[in-house]
Design a protein around this nucleic acid. Structure first.
Length: 471
RNA sequence: GGUGAGGUGGCAGAGUGGUUAUGCGUUCGCCUGCAGAGCGAAUUUAUAGGGGUUCAAAUCCCUUCCUCACCUCCA
């Protein structure tokens, strides 16, 4: 498959013949995650699911930044340890993302557990004269790395001219960034240069090299990490290893709200917790995959409400496929012959996969998925979803759901029994044309989240996912 | 100011030279005991403005305008 690489500004072929190593920059655990984080994580989760569906072997690593000024500030404000804060938000992260049906990465390395590796890396950079010890810490000398700026397409002199960089007399060059910061307060670790904390970028270099080695296949994250985070990672890692750091840099666009980037500093975030209660996992996933991953998407109530409609159609399709009518009809239309149907499904499947193979175009892939959904619902309306049809459509439908990470609610057995009883009762009323009584039962079922589908000879029911309860 | 990505129907969103994806919305009609799902028609001869190349442009080139992101912590 092809993926757009930020570094070369071109689509690059991803080699899936051997193990695909992916490193995704995760979150700094100082607060609740929001939809912006969710989008990035969901995009990579879906990429991973797709590669798995193609039989690709991979190693998928995502870090937690658990030492950082904001964590420490928060800890001080709440009068607890930094560890208490990071532990709390890591657990909250998993709560949310498990609910979003995000598969667990192979490993979630934490910065604090890789201090030794980071120190070794810094030591090496000093030995090779790429870094120097100064009054406030150890810094990476940007001017020593000729290719600095290659990812973000920035010129070193223009960056200096920009002068938004912090002025620090102890640095040789204002662009130099900290690999190790000397500090007096906790948390801090011993190093050959004195007690301190690691700089922000060094953890990802140390951990990706440790778990994936040099020149791994995909390094991912949000667009806003391109500079300075990923730029600095490249500088450190390539000076250390002397090798290319990552083959493909894949960056996910921002989630905006009213056209503005969703971020903590703007105070316009919607937390994962909130959106889960408001929309549920499937709507959020569909929403996050509805546009191309590299472009921004705008969070709006209207968009998400539209997505609910689509999800209801998916649920409808699933129930119809699950309960096909007996395949005895002698006057089955020719259009339902395997000869006609099979190639169509093969085409949808191909379109779905081709879309994803072409720079992971989930938007286009979704249109194939909805081709199936709409086609099945159409057939269902005409009482054409036979066992024969279902056998052809259902497996492909399920595979797509799995790749997209969507999960249709399954009712519990006890409840099913009760629902079945009520439906039987209602149909008895209907047979007697006692529609008021029948409608009362339907309403009662609706309160249980159950929607009925009356067909000519039978009534199907959908246990709908409860959506739109939060506010 | 610099760098990057964009501007496609009422809305969302594909499409990188030639059959106007796909979905949602709205209106009307049909189907249904009524719903759900579905069908038909309309909204819709959509490609920011201007110029150019071409038999042919949303797609290539030039230009103007606009939006967003990054240049400070950020997914």
């Amino acid at each position: 498959m092809k993926i757009f690489d930020t570094l070369s500004s071109a689509e690059k072929e991803l080699d899936t013949s051997s193990i695909v190593r992916i490193y995704v920059c995760g979150v700094t655990v100082y607060d609740e995650s929001h939809v912006g984080h969710a989008r990035t994580i969901i995009v990579f989760d879906t990429l991973r699911r797709f590669l798995e569906s193609q039989g690709t072997n991979m190693k998928f690593i995502q870090n937690f930044t658990d030492v950082d000024d904001k964590i420490i500030d928060r800890a001080k404000a709440e009068n607890v340890s930094a560890d208490t804060i990071s532990t709390k938000y890591i657990s909250s992260y998993f709560d949310g993302f498990d609910k979003l049906n995000v598969k667990r990465a192979d490993s979630y390395p934490k910065a604090t557990e890789h201090i030794t590796e980071m120190i070794d890396l810094v030591k090496d950079l000093i030995d090779k004269d790429y870094a120097y010890v100064s009054k406030n810490g150890v810094y990476f000398a940007v001017s020593k790395f000729k290719e600095y700026g290659k990812l973000s397409k920035k010129k070193i002199d223009e960056l200096v001219a920009g002068a938004r960089v912090e002025v620090d007399e102890t640095k040789r060059d204002p662009l130099d960034f900290a690999l190790w910061k000397f500090v007096d307060d906790e948390p801090r670790w011993e190093s050959p240069w004195g007690y301190g904390r690691p700089g922000w970028h060094i953890e990802c270099s140390a951990m990706s090299l440790k778990y994936l080695g040099s020149n791994f296949e995909i390094h991912g994250g949000g667009r806003d990490l391109i500079f300075p985070h990923h730029e600095n990672e490249i500088a450190q890692s390539e000076c250390y290893s002397g090798e290319n750091f990552a083959k493909i840099w894949m960056h996910v666009g921002m989630v905006t709200i009213n056209g503005e980037k969703m971020s903590k500093s703007l105070g316009n975030t919607k937390s994962v917790d909130f959106v889960l209660s408001r929309w549920g996992p499937n709507i959020i996933r569909l929403f996050c995959l509805s546009g191309h991953y590299s472009k921004p998407i705008d969070y709006s109530e209207d968009m998400l409400k539209e997505t609910i409609t689509k999800w209801r159609q998916v649920e409808n399709c699933y129930v119809e496929l699950l309960h096909p009518i007996k395949d005895e009809s002698p006057n089955r239309p020719e259009s339902l012959d395997s000869k006609i149907v099979e190639p169509k499904i093969i085409l949808y499947k191909k379109n779905f996969e081709d879309a994803l193979k072409s720079d992971f175009n989930t938007s286009l892939a979704l249109s194939s998925f909805f081709n199936i959904v709409n086609e099945v619902n159409n057939m269902a309306a005409h009482e054409f979803v036979t066992e024969h049809v279902s056998k052809l459509y259902l497996p492909e439908f399920k595979k797509m759901l799995e790749v997209l990470g969507l999960k249709i609610m399954e009712p519990i057995h006890e409840e099913s029994v009760r629902i079945y009883e009520l439906i039987t009762k209602r149909n008895a009323f209907r047979a007697q044309k006692k529609y008021r009584e029948a409608d009362e039962i339907r309403q009662q079922l609706e309160h249980m989240g159950v929607i009925l589908i009356d067909h000519k000879k039978r009534t199907l029911w959908i246990k709908q996912e409860k959506i739109g309860v939060g506010n």
